[in-house]
Design a protein around this nucleic acid. Structure first.
Lengths: 250, 250
DNA sequence: ATGAGCTTTCCGTACTGCGGAAAGATTGGC
DNA sequence: GCCAATCTTTCCGCAGTACGGAAAGCTCAT
C-alpha cells in the first residue's frame, strides 16, 4: 500500500515542472479537486519544494538541493571510477571512494579485484571521520575551526582500536599533511588495513578520499606500503585537478 | 492546514539526499516509526523519486527531471533578459520570450516599457503553437514529422481570427522560413499585433521564440515593421549562438 | 543453531486528507 | 461604477487512509 497524498504531491510537482503554473491549471491537468490542489500546492510551497510568484508556482530550492547533493555525488564517482579500477589492478586489493557528509564519511563506491570473492561492499555506509584513514585523510585538510570543533565533541569508539584521543588524532592529521596519505591497521574494521589520501575541490578543501584496503595479513605486501601510497596520491592528484584543484604538493 | 504525509515525504527525500540511505537510518534520523518510514520510502520509490539498490535508497530520476525542466527554463530566460530590455527600448513596446513545451508555448517572461502602464503580463501563460506568430515562429523550425502530426490534429479556435486551416498555417510557416520572422494581427489577442522570430538550440531546432507586441492601432509604426523585425532577428541570432547554434541565415 | 539487527508485513483504529460548496478576490466588458 | 466571469481561498463534515506497535521474516556473524 502506497501513500496517495505523496503520489499526488509528486504528480503536482511534475505538472508544475511541465509548465502548468496556476491552481486551476494544475487542477485541470491533474484532475484533482480545486481545494485539494490548492492544499497540495500550499504544502509543497511551505516546505520549499515550490516557490510562488503572485498566483504562479515553480520548482523551489528544496528540490534543487536534492539533485545538487545527488548530482555532485554521481559526478565524483564517475570521475573516480577509472582510477579505482586502476588502483585495484595495481594493488590487487579493493579500492574505494568516500565523501564528506557533515561530520561523517559516506562510501560512494568501490572496486574489488576478481580474486576477492567475498569482499564486503561498504557502498552507502556512513561513519565518523576519526574512524580510520579514510576519514582522517579528509579531516586533515578541512578548515582549522572545523577540525577544532570536531575534536572537541565526544568521539565514538567504533572498535577496540579506535583512536579517540584528540592529541593522538592531531598527530595523525599532521602526518597526512606531511606525507599526503595515512595508513591505519585494524581501526576501520577488524583485520583490515586501509591506506587513504584526500581528494580536493577547487578551493583546496578536502571533500572526499580515495583508499585501498585489504586484510592485514597480506596487505600491503612486504615493503610495498610506499608504493601503494604513491599510486594512491598520484590518482587523487589527478582527480583533484579534474575538480579544479592544483594538487597537494606543487 | 498542510498535508503531513507530503511534508514527511519531503523530509525523507532530504534525509536520503543527506546520506542516510537505509530504512533504519532514515527512521532514526527523522524520528518516524519504522513501518511509516518503510511505507514512505516505498511510495517515493514507486513514483521514481527514489531508486533502490539492495537496501539503500538514493534520489531518483523523477526529481532530477523536475530540476532539469526548471534549470533549462531559468538559463534561457537569463540569457534572453538583456535582449528583451534592448528590444523594449528600441521599439517602445513589450518584448517577451516563450518556450516550446509539448505542443504548446509557455511564456517565460516579458519586459514592458515604462509608458505601458496597464500592460498584461503573460508570464506562465500556455497556449497552442498555432495561436499566433509566437508559436508559428517555433513550429516552422521543428522536424517535419512533428509539424505534420500537429497540423493533422484538431486545432482550437482561440479567437474569431484564429487561423486553423492547415494549408493556411503551412503558408505562414513557409513565410517564417523565408524571411526569418512572422507578424500576426489580432490573432493572439484582440487588438494586439505580434512580431516573433525563432530561437534555435545547438541542433538547429527551434525551442523558443522572441517577440515584440503592441496594440494594433500604434504598433508597428508606419513603415517600421521591417525595422522591428530586423532588430528581433538580430537578437534571436545572438541568443541562438549562445545556445550553440550557427544562426538561421549564415 | 542461535542471537542480534534490520526489513517487511499485518491490522485495529484515530484522525488526516478529501472535496463540494460558499465566500472572497480579480479582471475585463459595458 | 456595476456586474459577470473566472479563479482563489476557506470551511467543515466525514470516509477511509495512513499510522505505528507488534510480529514475522531475513541476513549475517559467532
Amino acid at each position: 500500500m502506497t501513500i496517495t497524498a505523496i503520489e499526488r504531491g509528486l504528480l503536482v510537482l511534475r505538472t508544475v515542472a511541465a509548465g502548468y503554473t496556476t491552481v486551476s491549471e494544475v487542477s485541470t491537468e491533474t484532475g484533482l479537486a480545486l481545494a485539494t490542489t490548492a492544499r497540495i500546492l500550499d504544502t509543497l510551497q511551505q516546505a520549499g519544494a515550490l516557490t510562488r510568484t503572485e498566483k504562479r508556482y515553480r520548482i523551489g530550492p528544496t528540490i534543487i538541493e536534492l539533485v545538487h547533493a545527488e548530482a555532485t555525488t554521481l559526478d565524483l564517482l564517475g570521475i573516480a571510477k577509472p582510477h579505482l579500477h586502476a588502483l585495484a589492478d595495481a594493488t590487487q586489493e579493493t579500492a574505494g571512494l568516500a565523501e564528506l557528509v557533515g561530520d561523517d564519511i559516506v562510501h560512494l563506491g568501490q572496486v574489488a579485484t576478481e580474486h576477492d570473492v567475498s569482499v564486503r561492499d561498504w557502498t552507502g555506509f556512513r561513519i565518523g571521520l576519526h574512524s580510520g584513514a579514510i576519514g582522517m585523510a579528509i579531516l586533515a585538510h578541512r578548515p582549522r575551526a572545523e577540525i577544532d570543533r570536531y575534536l572537541a565533541s565526544p568521539l565514538e569508539q567504533y572498535v577496540e582500536q579506535s583512536v579517540i584521543d584528540p592529541d593522538a588524532i592531531r598527530t595523525r592529521l599532521d602526518l597526512v599533511r606531511d606525507q599526503g596519505w595515512l595508513a591505519t591497521v585494524d581501526e576501520y574494521d577488524q583485520g583490515v588495513t586501509t591506506v587513504a589520501a584526500p581528494v580536493f575541490d577547487r578551493s583546496g578543501c578536502a571533500i572526499a578520499s580515495l583508499h585501498v584496503h585489504g586484510p592485514t595479513y597480506r596487505f600491503p605486501a612486504a615493503d610495498l606500503l610506499e608504493d601503494v601510497a604513491n599510486h594512491l596520491v598520484e590518482r587523487t592528484r589527478t582527480i583533484s585537478r579534474v575538480l579544479g584543484h592544483g594538487g597537494t604538493h606543487r
